[in-house]
Amino acid sequence: MLLVFGELYAELLAEGEGRLRPAFGGALLRQALAARAAGARLRFLGRVGRDGYGRAIRAELSAAGIESALQEDEDHPTSLLLEGGEPVVYRAADSQLRSPGDPFFEGGALLHAGAWIFGLDPARTAAVEIFREGLRRGLTLSLDLRVARWACRGELEEVLRPFLPLGYMKTDAASAAALGLKPGELFQWAGQVLYFDDGTVRRLSLFDESGHRLPPGVAADEVYGRFLARVSAGEGPDEALAASLQADGRKGSAEE
């Protein structure tokens, strides 16, 4: 089973002059939905407010057949991301994430998180505890290293150092540049890295690499979600990436 935890928010997307269109969940949920569509059994941990956005996120998880481990915050609303020229994030409920009990980890094979949650106190403490417990239980760790305005590279490395190198990591050229990371340094962070840049993805490891173009209309989050579904079910990373880049990533999916 694939276990996912971390940031969770409603996105308000600019649509025409003075109009906003809501979307729910953010990058981690998009990855989780893609993994579920590719056949993964999946459990999702996050924290939402007791509000309409939180209910919409719960409904989206349920409709996709994803096992919910969502926490409900009575004091903080669901976090918001306002898209526009420069995105603005209002961190609220998800920054209050608490460590889960044993049931969250049961049956897990791979534990995936987003980097943002490791910079949001008090959620940072819970994130470190979750990774530590995953490591203790022998789970493979994965991280979405997305641009994190809260941290400089040194701070992020310090928080994650006990867990490096991870099993898998997703990043992109803009995020790596913002953190001062060169592609050749990514091996220090994870054994297998999917590096997205301008419509392409490179699979990087210490021993080999491969490059591919993304299929038209397929986003990086969708590819990485499919990839996690396959590697969590035991496929090798090269085969998993090749299958994840097919136009219909659900074909030949592997249940675990």
Score class of each variant (00 low, 15 high):
V4A: 13
G6M: 03
Y9C: 08
A10I: 11
L13I: 12
G16V: 02
E17M: 06
P22S: 08
A23G: 07
F24P: 03
G26L: 12
L29N: 03
A37G: 02
G54H: 09
A63C: 00
G65I: 06
E67R: 08
A69E: 11
A69L: 06
D73W: 00
D73L: 05
E74H: 04
D75N: 14
D75C: 10
L81M: 13
E83L: 08
G85K: 03
V88H: 09
Y90T: 05
Y90H: 13
R91F: 07
A93C: 01
P100W: 02
G101L: 06
D102C: 00
G107V: 10
H112K: 10
A113P: 00
A115L: 11
L120T: 11
D121E: 15
P122A: 03
E129N: 14
E129F: 09
E129A: 15
R132C: 04
R137K: 11
L141Y: 03
L145P: 08
A151R: 12
R153L: 09
E157F: 14
E158Y: 02
P162W: 02
P183I: 09
L186C: 11
W189F: 11
T200Y: 07
L204G: 09
F207I: 04
S210I: 05
S210P: 03
G211N: 13
H212F: 15
R213E: 14
L214Q: 06
L214K: 08
A219H: 15
D221Q: 13
L241V: 11
L245M: 06
D248T: 06
K251H: 09
S253K: 09
E255N: 08
